[in-house]
């Protein structure tokens, strides 16, 4: 059984009289442990697709099965539970809570899961050291560089042992050198921890790191290619 199974999903936004078809019948499956990049022109529906995969938004048509569960039948709190336990988000703008220490940001998903205090600290430290930031635990977001903030965000995505990481242009705000570091971290998490990674990018260099590239155009799948040779 595929981890993610999307069947003819569509998303239509209605703005007054105007209807915007952000997605029009996208079907694909993604298996456990895959490393997928999504490319496409701006406005082609990449983010809309990611938000649906991440259970932040519901499709207006079609079916989305996550781990065999049909998402359309779930209520707000059930979706929140899925986002909390099964999905780790990494955003272009990092989206850390301001005035909140790195370690507290990492602990946040565990609070919502109800992890006991002792375990929380231990796991947050482990996650921070996995992204190489164990010595920045007490720093506030505004005391960290962009790359470091994105690492904290990745640590937050990892901490509840979510099997999937969704990253919407995670390197969009970073310079090339830092981008490479972040991509290396993703590859490591994919190869060593078996985490399924789906990331949006419009830089071919970044897409090179993945083993499968999906292209969107006008809300539809244009191509879906496996890469045989590994980046190196």
């Amino acid at each position: 059984m595929a981890l993610i199974e999307v069947d003819k999903i569509s998303k239509t936004y209605t703005l007054g009289d105007v209807e915007v078809n952000a997605l029009r019948g996208v079907s694909l499956t993604i298996g456990k442990g895959e490393f997928v990049s999504i490319m496409g022109a701006s406005g082609s529906g990449k983010s809309t697709f990611m938000n649906i995969l991440g259970c932040l938004d519901k499709p207006t048509g079609g079916r989305y099965l996550l781990d065999g569960v049909d998402i359309s039948g779930l209520d707000r709190d059930e979706l929140a539970e899925i986002r909390n336990g099964k999905i780790g988000f990494v955003f272009q703008g990092f989206n850390l809570l301001p005035r909140t220490q790195a370690i507290e940001n990492v602990e946040l998903p565990m609070f919502y899961k109800g992890v006991p205090a002792a375990k929380r600290t231990e796991r947050a430290r482990a996650a921070l050291s996995m992204v190489g930031l164990e010595d920045r635990a007490k720093h506030y977001p505004n005391q960290l560089s962009g790359g470091q903030q994105q690492r904290v965000a990745i640590a937050r995505a990892l901490v509840n042992e979510a099997p999937i990481i969704l990253a919407d242009e995670p390197t969009g705000n970073l310079d090339t050198k830092t981008s490479v570091e972040i991509m290396d971290l993703f590859r490591h998490l994919n190869a060593e921890n078996g985490i399924t990674i789906i990331l949006v990018t419009h830089e071919p260099d970044i897409a090179e790191w993945s083993r499968r590239t999906i292209r969107f155009m006008d809300g539809q799948l244009m191509s879906d290619e496996e890469r045989t040779e590994r980046h190196g």
Partner: peptide, 16 residues
């Protein structure tokens, strides 16, 4: 609002 969005994205429920 954004903070609320972040919290919801990482799993905060209605009552949280």
């Amino acid at each position: 609002t954004r903070e609320i969005g972040i919290r919801m994205a990482i799993g905060a429920k209605t009552w949280d």
